[in-house]
């Protein structure tokens, strides 16, 4: 059986995550674990080849998913995006004493988003699909930069060194990639 021929069912995972958040649905959580667990383990391995650490960080990520699923808001994005941020934070915490300074939406000095218009809310549903399509149409050299950034936490200077490119080229490819993704999402860039 080839896994790669299956179309990933984004909505399905998002629905599962909502069920975990609402009802502590164990079956839905196992579905998420079977789908994302091996991918998160592989993501952890891209930073360090230590299998035990990768397994530990994957388990920690999935524990956090279980514990915080009620904070997931499907109107703000897909399950894969939310789970990525948890995996990323677990990885950063494992390697950096200071962790990753972040804003806090419950902080009284935080400036909240404006009220979202109803049509914007509807677009959220389609956003994952549109983004997936746009990612598929990015030139390979732009996808390579995104993979080096997200998989390996490479900074621009590390990427420039690895690919033997001037740093200005790395920056302009990053800007091109995100301007295309934003165009696909129907936003000015």
């Amino acid at each position: 059986m080839s896994k790669s021929t299956q179309t990933p069912d984004t909505e399905d995972h998002t629905a599962r995550l909502v069920a975990v958040g609402r009802n502590a649905d164990l079956e839905a959580f196992e579905g998420l674990f079977r789908h994302f667990g091996p991918k998160i383990r592989a993501y952890m391995m891209k930073r360090s080849a230590d299998r035990h650490l990768a397994e530990e960080l994957m388990q920690e990520t999935m524990m956090t998913v279980w514990n915080k699923a009620d904070q997931f808001d499907p109107a703000r994005g897909a399950a894969s995006s939310w789970i990525f941020t948890i995996a990323r934070n677990a990885r950063v915490d494992a390697y950096r004493k200071s962790g990753r300074p972040a804003f806090d939406p419950s902080d009284p000095a935080f400036v909240p988003d404006g009220i979202m218009a109803a049509d914007t809310m509807m677009e959220m549903d389609q956003e994952a699909g549109r983004l997936r399509e746009a990612m598929g149409s990015l030139p390979p050299e732009q996808v390579e930069l995104l993979k080096l950034s997200f998989y390996e936490e490479a900074s621009h200077s590390m990427i420039a060194e690895r690919l033997n490119l001037p740093i200005g080229t790395v920056k302009s490819r990053i800007r091109l990639a995100f301007s295309k993704l934003r165009d696909a999402l129907g936003e000015r860039s």
Partner: peptide, 26 residues
């Protein structure tokens, strides 16, 4: 924390990252 527009761009980047993690062939 002061800029909803930049947070929106950040969440788009995180959505792209989510797709890339999902694309990992485990």
């Amino acid at each position: 924390a002061l800029c909803p527009e930049c947070r929106r761009r950040l969440s788009q980047m995180e959505a792209a990252a989510g797709l890339l993690v999902e694309a990992i062939e485990a």
